[in-house]
Computed example of a mutant assay.
Amino acid sequence: MASNTDQKTDDEWRAILSPEQASFRARFFRILRQKGTERASTGEYDKHFDEGVYSCAACATPLYKSTTKFDSGCGWPAFFDAIPGAVTRHTDSSWGMERIEIVCTACGGHLGHVFKGEKFDTPTDERHCVNSVSLKFKDGDGVEKSG
């Protein structure tokens, strides 16, 4: 797996992340850089099923193909697998339990968590539960789309 090649300080990330309004920028920073979570069913990609590629919102690295996305009913975008090498897994014990955190391999941006053994009808029996704020979607023709 690749190492984090796009390392920046928190101040550098604050300066470049999202040119949009301050409230979105603050939420974007809280989730991607401080490992926060957006509220369930509030993200733009939860019920989004167009054909294309989901990339890291911070560094534009392709992370997930739409062919691996499924409706888990959890309130966040769910994928059963990532593009090989694009996502790195870490043990997260922050809530008094052990979970698997997933981050963008290229920039270290927090994406969400992986849950195993939930018996979804998918090839991997995994659910990558990803924050919409951590993603940008490009349709099958490579055109960036907002939800």
Rank of each mutant, 00 (worst) to 15 (best):
Gly43Thr: 04
Gly43Lys: 01
Glu44Phe: 06
Glu44Asp: 09
Asp46Arg: 03
Lys47Asn: 15
His48Tyr: 12
Phe49Glu: 12
Phe49Ala: 10
Phe49Ser: 06
Asp50Leu: 10
Asp50Met: 13
Gly52Asp: 02
Gly52Glu: 00
Gly52Tyr: 01
Val53Ser: 12
Tyr54Thr: 10
Ala57Gly: 10
Ala58Tyr: 00
Cys59Glu: 06
Ala60Lys: 03
Pro62Val: 13
Leu63Cys: 14
Tyr64Lys: 01
Lys65Ala: 05
Lys65Asp: 08
Ser66Glu: 04
Ser66Gly: 13
Thr67Lys: 13
Thr67Asp: 13
Thr68Val: 12
Lys69Tyr: 10
Lys69Leu: 03
Phe70Glu: 00
Phe70Lys: 04
Asp71Ala: 12
Asp71Thr: 04
Gly73Phe: 07
Cys74Gln: 06
Gly75Gln: 03
Gly75Arg: 05
Gly75Phe: 02
Trp76Phe: 07
Pro77Leu: 06
Pro77Asp: 14
Phe80Gly: 00
Asp81Leu: 03
Asp81Phe: 07
Ala82Gly: 14
Pro84Leu: 11
Gly85Phe: 14
Gly85Leu: 09
Ala86Ile: 11
Val87Phe: 08
Thr88Gln: 15
Thr88Gly: 09
Arg89Asn: 03
His90Thr: 15
His90Ile: 05
Thr91Cys: 08
Ser93Lys: 11
Ser93Trp: 07
Ser94Glu: 11
Ser94Trp: 14
Trp95Gln: 13
Trp95Lys: 15
Met97Gln: 03
Glu98Asn: 13
Arg99Tyr: 11
Ile102His: 04
Val103Asp: 02
Cys104Met: 06
Ala106Ser: 12
Cys107Gly: 00
Gly108Val: 00
Gly108Leu: 00
Gly109Arg: 01
Gly112Phe: 03
Gly112Tyr: 03
Gly112Thr: 04
His113Cys: 11
Val114Met: 06
Lys116Ala: 13
Lys116Cys: 06
Glu118Gln: 14
Asp121Gln: 13
Asp121Trp: 10
Thr122Asp: 05
Thr122Ser: 04
Pro123Cys: 10
Thr124Tyr: 12
